[in-house]
Simulated assay, not measured.
Amino acid sequence: MRKKVADPKTRILETATRLFYTQGYNATGINQIIKEAEVARASLYLHYQSKEELCIAFLNFRHKYWFDALMKFTEELTDPEEKLMAAFDFLISMNDQEDFRGCAFMNILSEISPADQTIYTIIQHHKQNLRDYLASIFPEQGQLLKDHIYLLFESSMLESHLYRDQWPIIQSKKTIKTLL
Rank of each mutant, 00 (worst) to 15 (best):
Q166G: 00
A6Y: 14
E36Y: 09
E14T: 01
N31Q: 11
T15P: 02
A40H: 13
E159D: 11
H126I: 01
H47W: 05
F153Q: 03
L59Q: 02
D96V: 00
E14N: 10
P80R: 15
D89T: 01
I30S: 13
S155P: 03
I34L: 00
T175C: 04
F100C: 03
S160Y: 11
H161V: 01
G29V: 04
R2D: 07
S93P: 00
Y45W: 06
S43M: 11
G29H: 14
I123F: 02
I119M: 07
D7T: 02
K3T: 02
L44N: 01
L134E: 09
Y21T: 02
K83W: 08
T74R: 12
R62C: 05
R41E: 13
F61A: 10
A37K: 05
F58G: 03
D79Y: 14
I12T: 09
L19P: 00
A87T: 10
E53D: 06
G24H: 04
F61V: 02
A69Q: 14
K35M: 08
L84H: 09
A69R: 14
K173H: 09
K35L: 06
A6L: 15
Y163W: 10
Y163R: 15
H161K: 12
A86L: 07
I92C: 01
Y133L: 15
H161E: 08
S110R: 13
K3D: 00
Q117C: 04
F138V: 03
L59S: 05
I30H: 04
L162I: 12
T178E: 09
F105C: 14
T78G: 04
F20V: 05
F67Q: 07
E140M: 06
I169F: 02
I12L: 05
N129K: 15
L130E: 15
E98D: 09
H148P: 00
K173C: 07
H125L: 06
P114Q: 06
T15F: 13
G142T: 05
T78A: 08
T28D: 01
Y163I: 08
F67E: 03
I56T: 08
F100L: 06
F100R: 01
S160A: 11
K35C: 01
P139H: 14
F20N: 01
F58P: 01
S43V: 07
F58T: 00
I122E: 04
V5E: 13
F20R: 03
